[in-house]
Design a protein around this nucleic acid. Structure first.
Ligand SMILES: [Mn+2]
Ligand SMILES: [Mn+2]
Ligand SMILES: [Mn+2]
Ligand SMILES: [Mn+2]
Lengths: 222, 222
DNA sequence: ATAATTTTTTAGGTGAGGCTAAAATAATCT
DNA sequence: AGATTATTTTAGCCTCACCTAAAAAATTAT
């Protein structure tokens, strides 16, 4: 069986790969909160298991098999997040931490049961796509709110789930997936972005606005 | 933090202690499916953590703190079993295995949420009592069906959850907690027990009948 | 009461997944 | 280009939870 450590490495490599293509030892070490030397050791193991390709000093890339396993874990994680929110009434800033532990221990039957109970969903509470069983993922990369210009309108599609504080803040302000937004102002020198949602308007620091992804030409709106 | 291994040892010691009082190294080794030497090692660790008292060559007994932790894990396990059965439609022969892994990773919040969702239950699907948060457990030891004499009537209260095969067999026959039973015959020389439930009667081997616990003077019946 | 047997502990090892410190390699600056 | 700095790998250790084989203690049989 594949250990939890291996699962976490694969998941993390997958996510880093989305941004940067090839993943460096130091990036992986930082994301895993582990010493760089430990990463080198694990990367060798992953390579010997044919889960990654490793070119020493150059970084690491998931193999087909590694990507499949990564997606499997991510599927568990996101289904769990949604289940915790929908079925157990978790607030959206707490689901991540709980899912982080559960994702490694649920059976395929459990996965299947919650998938059906949720009506075969495709998005987690933060708007991230839930990989399908066959390894398909909807790509759909949207613009960061921080990159939009005044006048732009659209619908929030994703909110980064990495920081619980941020989620709590945005949640109370209604800045959640499927909320419509309009950019009113964007102050220069990395200044705040002013956005209007249904009724109220909000002034968000540029860092915060980076966490929000907006679909500017909404095809459908919920 | 307390490791999963420690949690499993405490849980197992608790269960063995229910039958035998003090728990021997070999009994623990067999239950944990581990070499006796490994048990000695872990027992020393548990003793140093003040979770058990160990008199070398004499066996081991849970301390107050150890018992509290054991009950905590058992509470998780039984709440999970019930939740899997009630909320996710698991069959009662599969809940044990899944709960065995989940019990170690759920948070107190998760525990609380499923406890409330289930209506603050006191019994798991096999009829075993769910320890309360404060460490209270309903004792209620009932007679084994194999020990009853012909003519005895009562209500099934517990079915041993150790063997999935047994559970499947009993389940299809309606021999589940809260089913009324009457002992019709008991063949000598460890022969089978014939029991009548609502309509049908069943002939059960003595070994099988041992797995079923019956309350002979039912106070209330569901 | 001794001897034989069983149970438990000790001694020494293994593999996973971490760590720090030092060496090797790559990238950047002057 | 050569020196400096940053990144990555190697070397050597550690802890946890397991293992087998041997020694020690307790129990049971003669
Ligand atoms: Mn799965
Ligand atoms: Mn998420
Ligand atoms: Mn608990
Ligand atoms: Mn049970």
């Amino acid at each position: 069986m594949i250990s939890e450590a291996v699962q976490d490495y694969l998941k993390t490599i997958y996510k880093l790969q989305e941004d940067t293509g090839v993943v460096s030892t130091s990036a992986l070490a930082e994301a895993m909160e582990v010493a760089a030397a430990s990463v080198t050791g694990m990367v060798k193991k992953l390579a010997s298991l044919k889960l990654v390709r490793h070119h020493p000093y150059q970084g690491v890339v998931l193999s087909k098999a590694g990507e499949k396993m990564a997606l499997e874990v991510i599927r568990h994680h996101r289904l769990l997040e949604l289940y915790l929110a929908e079925a157990l009434g978790y607030s959206w800033d707490k689901v991540h931490e709980e899912a982080e532990r559960l994702e490694h221990v649920i059976s395929e039957e459990f996965e299947e049961k919650i998938f059906e109970a949720l009506g075969r969903p495709t998005r987690d509470p933060h708007g991230d796509p839930i990989p399908a069983k066959d390894g398909t993922v909807v790509a759909a990369e949207h613009d960061r709110l921080s990159d939009l210009e005044p006048g732009a309108t659209g619908v929030i599609r994703q909110v980064s789930d990495s920081d619980a504080e941020v989620l709590r803040y945005l949640g109370t302000r209604g800045l959640v997936p499927n909320a419509p937004v309009e950019v009113l102002e964007k102050a220069p020198f990395n200044g705040p972005v002013t956005v209007k949602t249904r009724e109220t308007s909000h002034v968000l620091g540029r860092d915060l606005a980076q966490h929000i992804r907006v679909e500017t030409r909404p095809e459908d709106e919920t």
